[in-house]
Amino acid sequence: MKKILIIDDESIIRRALQRAFNSKGYETFVAADAFMGEGLWKEQDPDLVIIDVIMPNKTGPELIAEMKSYIADKNFKIVLISAYSGDYDTNLAKYKNIDLFIKKPFVNIFKVVEQMEGLLV
């Protein structure tokens, strides 16, 4: 069973994504901040990590940089989600070599989940 880690400080987003992936048979883990997320990541070794950009204490991109430096050859996919859809974020996503960048608001949760699943094939 593939594991998915959702790191977002907005609880309702966590719940929505968790519900969507659970219903498709994935094992999900949720974290409300980068610190908790990093712990779960090390512990659970997920296949996909969904990370929000703006979070208290540490931002998504900062967390990603740390994960990458911790172990570079670990095989996992990263999805960055953000309510800030300006050029800055898009560039940042490219720069940090993220697998997928998704803008909030999601127009359609089912399509978003499909896109993310595509990374796991």
Partner: peptide, 21 residues
């Protein structure tokens, strides 16, 4: 707008998901 986008996305997504259950 940015602040509202987050919860709204969650509300809408969750509602859509439960409705399909």
């Amino acid at each position: 707008s940015h602040e509202l986008n987050n919860p709204l996305t969650g509300i809408k997504s969750l509602a859509d998901l439960i409705a399909r259950d």
